[in-house]
Simulated assay, not measured.
Amino acid sequence: MADGLDRFLEGRRLSPAQRRIARYLTDHLAEAIFLSSVELAERAGVSQPSVTRFAMVLGFAGYPELRHALRPLVVGGRTPSRANDLQAAIDAEIDNLRNVRETLGDPSGIVDLGTTLAGCEPLPVLGLRVSSGLATTFAYFARRIHPDVRLLTHGGSELADGLHAARRAGAGWLLAVILPRYPAEAVRALLTARELGLRIAVITDRPDVPFEADVILAAPVGERLVFDSHAAPLALAMVLVEAMADAAPLRTQARLEEYERMTEQARVFTEHPG
């Protein structure tokens, strides 16, 4: 039954509330097809309008039409089965990582971008809302091998100031992380960056995004849980850091050795007793 429901969900971008509905249907489809939209909303812990919007996202006029379409998945002698949803979510992430691996069959694109960003001083890195975590992780490691990485994770005038300051200091590129749901302010920041003369590279979830960039690095996000998981975009970001490190090997070696001396002198890390 879950496989049949997956056919309805495939390729759909669901909100967190809609994912709660999808998960309830996956777990309880045999009983859910007899529930009203109000009852389903109560069981899934969402509002009744959320159930209606969920049905419309799947291409139906309303919940009654969706319920009618789901009934053949239950009625007809099929043996109910309940997969472990948490394991299925991890399986989906493994598939996403395989997708990234396949795109690296020809590494020339990310190698070229790594070389370009390694030579960009300063290097502004943008990430707002949910994308700020991945942008921060990228910047944390990139700073170990790059002399001037400028992290931009706050919006408003502070973001505009950061873009202008980076451009005045000689930046030629902006690396942006824009994961769904795509923040409108981040998209506007790309337009500002373009007006300032910056070229743009974006780490995102798919090639066909509603904004423009000179380079798009796409890695699917996990959509099986209430909130997206970002294992594949994180792996892609770390590959880009590796490409930057390889592009300037002498600088990378010198900076990493200096960093290790500093952390040892300051006793930054606790040594494992083994």
Rank of each mutant, 00 (worst) to 15 (best):
G109N: 10
G59H: 12
P107I: 02
E195C: 02
D205K: 02
E121C: 10
T270L: 11
R23V: 00
P210W: 09
R67Y: 09
H164M: 07
I178F: 04
A135P: 06
T79D: 05
E42P: 00
R19P: 07
L240I: 00
A139M: 06
P72Q: 08
D205A: 14
S108N: 09
H68F: 10
R150V: 15
N84F: 01
S47G: 12
L174Q: 09
F34W: 12
S229G: 00
R267S: 12
A92V: 00
R143V: 00
V226Q: 15
Q18C: 02
L174T: 11
T204Y: 03
Y140H: 09
L35K: 12
R194G: 07
R143F: 07
R20L: 14
L86A: 13
L159D: 13
R261M: 11
E121T: 15
E195W: 11
E158S: 15
L234F: 10
R23P: 01
G274C: 01
F227K: 03
E10H: 07
G59I: 04
Q253R: 15
R168F: 06
T252I: 03
L29N: 13
T52Y: 08
A89T: 00
H230W: 07
R82W: 08
L66K: 08
A254H: 13
F54W: 10
G59R: 12
E223S: 05
Q253P: 04
P273H: 01
H230V: 14
P233D: 04
L152K: 01
E264H: 14
S36I: 07
T192H: 15
A189I: 02
R19N: 07
A30T: 13
P233K: 02
V239H: 09
A55G: 10
S229Y: 00
A176R: 04
L128C: 03
A17P: 06
